[in-house]
Design a protein around this nucleic acid. Structure first.
Ligand SMILES: NC(=O)c1ccc[n+]([C@@H]2O[C@H](COP(=O)([O-])OP(=O)(O)OC[C@H]3O[C@@H](n4cnc5c(N)ncnc54)[C@H](O)[C@@H]3O)[C@@H](O)[C@H]2O)c1
Ligand SMILES: NC(=O)c1ccc[n+]([C@@H]2O[C@H](COP(=O)([O-])OP(=O)(O)OC[C@H]3O[C@@H](n4cnc5c(N)ncnc54)[C@H](O)[C@@H]3O)[C@@H](O)[C@H]2O)c1
Lengths: 253, 253
DNA sequence: ATGTCTTTGTGAACGCGTGCACAAAGATGG
DNA sequence: CCATCTTTGTGCACGCGTTCACAAAGACAT
């Protein structure tokens, strides 16, 4: 679900499995909450519950970082916060550019959770000349012509793309050419990038479709179990499709 | 990475593996593009390239749906669009409510990609009395007091949460109690839900942290390979941490 | 009809991720 | 100093997901 293309084995980076890396932010968030409430230590059991994962999994995850726990006691909250932050690279701060300041881009710019974790919005970039100079979230929008210069001057290595789908690949190419090596893509397109560049995508539409699949399945099972309960039959419900759907579709030529 | 809690074996639903389900929307998007350009058939190789996946994986994915291809030719685009749409439950439309109409919620409400795939915004809900009645994306915002009635009256089974983190769990509980069985959560919290309810989350902050991890790793490798190239040394760069980081941190008590 | 050529569908091998279950480590109390 | 109790760290087994590689299926030409 990362790196756009044939990528490396997708596997562990310096011994830390990708799946573990993806959970570290989750642990960090839970730990930050405990830290704010001045809780000194947590057991793997408690922390796992707070993060919504299995405690054995959490312990194994932490074991990749080192032996930071104390048997019979648990983990020191502050220490662990620091270790995970360091491992994730959050002890330095990362300048980020957002490209495409429309509905979504503006919402992202206004998002407080950005700065809270070492990420700093270095610039907002949009192709619309009418937007240039207008401040969004206190930051003046700059024109897309300036993209290369902005990335270069600020040493930006992380770019966020919130343009329409059609513009995403060209924008991506320019970002990469300018030196960006990590991209978070909100546009519904597959981005192609050179080796060494990481791409992660966030796609609302895909998430909804996955939910719809399970929703349909639940409805199907329900209908199958209780073989008759037309509870105010929702929607048209055309073709209740049997165990394995034969379908009234046009077949290929 | 779905279902909030201990969940069922996370495995296949009706024979279709979860990983496959997550890719079907990707294929569907690629196919829709081909369909609009009136391309009649595609090979697994071509389609896989368009979707950014391995062709063997794509063929195996499709094999779970049935034998819809023709050897020597490929897949019929229109037919496949229909089959995948049906499998994902997109032939019916799903009423969706969005709760929390702030920066993000408003952006979501304005998002066109919603309606394009069988999802219909049935209502916008916010707790702020000042917002009640004000139209966003042409839909009047309704007060949170009406939540249960809205869900019930519209037969809503999918809810989107875009409230602040603190409000997410209570809102979630109310949605579930009112009959919602699928939730897409944008708030940075772990939601706890009863069995039978699916939760998927979208967390910008987590995505960025994962990118930062890899970014740091790249920087580290680079610094390790070419043992000296202070190319206008980006940022303060404190503690270049050796192969295995010893750290100047306060140790636990 | 027969042969050739393309492309699917899948058996099999492999690797990653998950979770169980337990030995070892260390805290705590006597 | 020893016994007990708690909690970590991990060996191990298992299952899901990915990928290779190839036999079979069918199109198409002759
Ligand atoms: N709004 C959402 O909730 C939402 C959700 C999921 C995905 N998306 C996706 O995010 C993207 C943005 O959505 P949106 O609703 O903000 O759209 P939008 O039309 O409101 O904003 C797009 C912005 O990008 C700018 N732009 C266009 N081409 C550009 C270029 N080449 N360089 C720089 N800027 C450029 C436009 O001027 C505009 O300001 C779309 O791809 C959309 O599909 C949006
Ligand atoms: N803005 C972003 O780009 C972004 C990105 C990632 C995550 N998030 C998360 O999404 C959520 C919303 O972000 P935002 O920027 O839109 O915040 P916001 O403050 O602009 O909007 C929150 C909205 O929720 C409403 N609300 C509060 N309590 C409610 C309740 N109990 N019931 C119904 N509505 C309620 C508020 O009235 C407000 O309108 C936050 O949890 C944030 O962390 C936002």
């Amino acid at each position: 679900m990362a790196t756009g293309r044939t990528h490396r084995p997708a596997s562990r980076s310096r011994g830390i499995p990708e799946a573990t890396v993806a959970r570290l932010p989750l642990y960090l968030r839970a730990l930050t909450g405990l830290s704010e409430r001045s809780v000194p230590t947590v057991s793997s059991e408690e922390l796992a519950a707070a993060a919504g994962v299995n405690s054995a999994k959490l312990r194994k995850d932490f074991s990749y970082l080192g032996s930071y726990g104390t048997r019979g006691v648990g983990y020191d909250v502050e220490y662990l916060v620091y270790q995970i932050s360091r491992e994730l690279g959050l002890t330095q701060d990362w300048p980020v550019v957002i490209v495409g300041i429309g509905n979504l881009g503006a919402a992202l710019a206004n998002y407080g959770g950005f700065a809270s974790r070492g990420f700093r919005v270095a610039a907002l970039i949009d192709a619309d000349p009418a937007m240039a100079g207008k401040p969004v979230a206190g930051i003046p929008v700059q024109h897309a012509d300036e993209l290369e210069k902005i990335v270069s001057d600020n040493g930006v290595s992380i770019g966020v793309i919130a343009t329409p789908a059609g513009a995403a690949q060209p924008v991506c190419d320019r970002l990469v050419a300018a030196g960006v090596t990590s991209i978070l893509n909100f546009a519904p397109t597959v981005l192609t990038v050179p080796d060494g560049v990481d791409v992660r995508k966030v796609d609302l539409s895909i998430e909804l479709q996955i939910l719809a699949f399970h929703e349909q399945r639940k409805a199907g099972e329900e209908a199958a179990n209780q073989a008759a309960h037309p509870t105010a039959a929702r929607r048209d419900d055309s073709a209740e499709q049997g165990p394995d759907g034969d379908v009234p579709a046009v077949m290929p030529a």
